[in-house]
Amino acid sequence: MEQLNLRHLYYFWVISREGSIARASEVLELAPQTLSGQLATFEASVGGRLFSRERRQLILTDLGRLILGYADDIFALTGELAETLRLDPSERPLTLRAGISASIHKLIAYYLLQPAMAVKRSIQLECQTGRTEDLVLSLKRKELDLVLTDRMPKLQEEANLTVHPLAGSSMSLFAAPELADRLRDGFPESLNGQPLLANATDAPYFERLMNWFSLNGVRMRLIARVDDSALIKVFGSQGYGVFAAPTVIREEVCRQYEVEQIASIDDVVDELFAITRGGKIAHDGVRAICEAHSDFQGLK
């Protein structure tokens, strides 16, 4: 069967729902003989009987039940499509496909995306995480509507992409309560020789943090590199070492992972950017994200 006849599939679906050709013919406004002929043609195309007769009732065969499962999904979607198309264009859901650099903390990504969810038009959000370079390629192919990243990308002029600086946050150091309490006294010298949990995705803020340590004569012991921001905090909460996270989310980090802040380092900033196609932003959700950075409380 090279091509499925959707009209025949629809006739079969209605017959299955109504339970008889007579009732289905009334719904479809077709003569019973015509509908029987269409069903026979469909059965021939799929290579088997779809119904058996028992006491004048139509009973689905195994093949019929298999095809009905697919038909239910297909016509449920077409029903949703029909409802959507009946809406005014301004009321139809708008898909927002966002690429998020893997090194961005998930809570930060949530705050950056939140303005899009508050626009008047209904937004259907699709998120994809990965390397900034790969996400930018997807953006060029129009597979994404914007990319959120913590590194300034090198863009070619012919790429027709625009970088929008967003608000940034200073970084803080966190640890399990006992370790954090011990390291506050004499900070930053107290960090010497202490275990450090690092981000394995080469996040730009981590390089800045290492430079800050060097300038302040601090040498910590790197014990793990983890590319999952949540997993780093789990290790930290169990007392395995010190980890860094944006200061703006310190309350959520402390509450969720039962850790404490050691100190905030204002000289180390996690910079954030949005990358879009073209110069003028037409997408309501993308525009809301790019324009809301000045209202992103606490990010400086």
Rank of each mutant, 00 (worst) to 15 (best):
Leu4Glu: 04
Arg7Ala: 13
Tyr10Ser: 13
Tyr11Cys: 10
Trp13Met: 14
Gly19Met: 06
Arg23Gly: 10
Ser25Gln: 03
Val27Met: 14
Leu30Asp: 07
Gln33Cys: 06
Thr41Pro: 00
Thr41Ala: 12
Gly48Cys: 01
Arg56Trp: 10
Ile59Ser: 08
Asp62Gly: 08
Leu63Gly: 05
Arg65His: 07
Ala71Arg: 08
Asp72Cys: 10
Asp72Met: 11
Ala76Trp: 04
Ala76Arg: 07
Ala76Gly: 04
Thr78Leu: 09
Glu80Asp: 15
Glu80His: 13
Glu83Phe: 01
Ser90Arg: 15
Pro93Thr: 09
Pro93Arg: 03
Leu94Phe: 08
Gly99Asp: 00
Ser101Val: 00
Ile104Trp: 02
Lys106Asp: 15
Leu112Val: 08
Leu113Glu: 10
Leu113Gly: 09
Val119Ala: 11
Ser122Asn: 12
Leu125Val: 07
Arg131Met: 04
Arg131Cys: 01
Leu135Trp: 00
Leu135Cys: 02
Leu137Val: 05
Leu139Lys: 00
Val147His: 00
Val147Met: 02
Leu148Arg: 04
Leu148Val: 04
Met152Ala: 07
Pro153Cys: 09
Gln156Glu: 14
Glu157Pro: 04
Ala159Val: 01
Ala159Trp: 01
Pro165Gly: 14
Ala167Leu: 05
Ser169Val: 05
Met171Asn: 06
Ser172Tyr: 01
Glu178Gly: 09
Leu179Trp: 01
Asp181Asn: 02
Leu183Cys: 01
Arg184Pro: 00
Asp185Lys: 06
Asp185Trp: 05
Phe187Arg: 05
Ser190Asn: 11
Asn192Tyr: 01
Gly193Pro: 02
Gln194Arg: 03
Leu197Cys: 07
Phe206Met: 15
Glu207Thr: 14
Met210Pro: 08
Gly217Lys: 12
Arg221Leu: 10
Leu222Phe: 04
Val226Cys: 06
Asp227Leu: 00
Ala230Thr: 07
Phe235Arg: 15
Gly236Gln: 01
Ser237Lys: 00
Gly239Ser: 07
Tyr240Phe: 06
Val248Asn: 06
Val248Gln: 12
Gln256Leu: 13
Tyr257Gln: 04
Glu258Ala: 14
Glu258Tyr: 03
Glu260His: 15
Gln261Trp: 02
Ile262Asp: 09
Ala263Val: 04
Ser264Leu: 05
Ile265Val: 07
Ile275Gly: 05
Gly279Arg: 10
Lys280Arg: 12
Val286Pro: 05
Arg287Lys: 15
Ala288Glu: 13
Ile289His: 11
Cys290Tyr: 04
Leu299Ala: 15
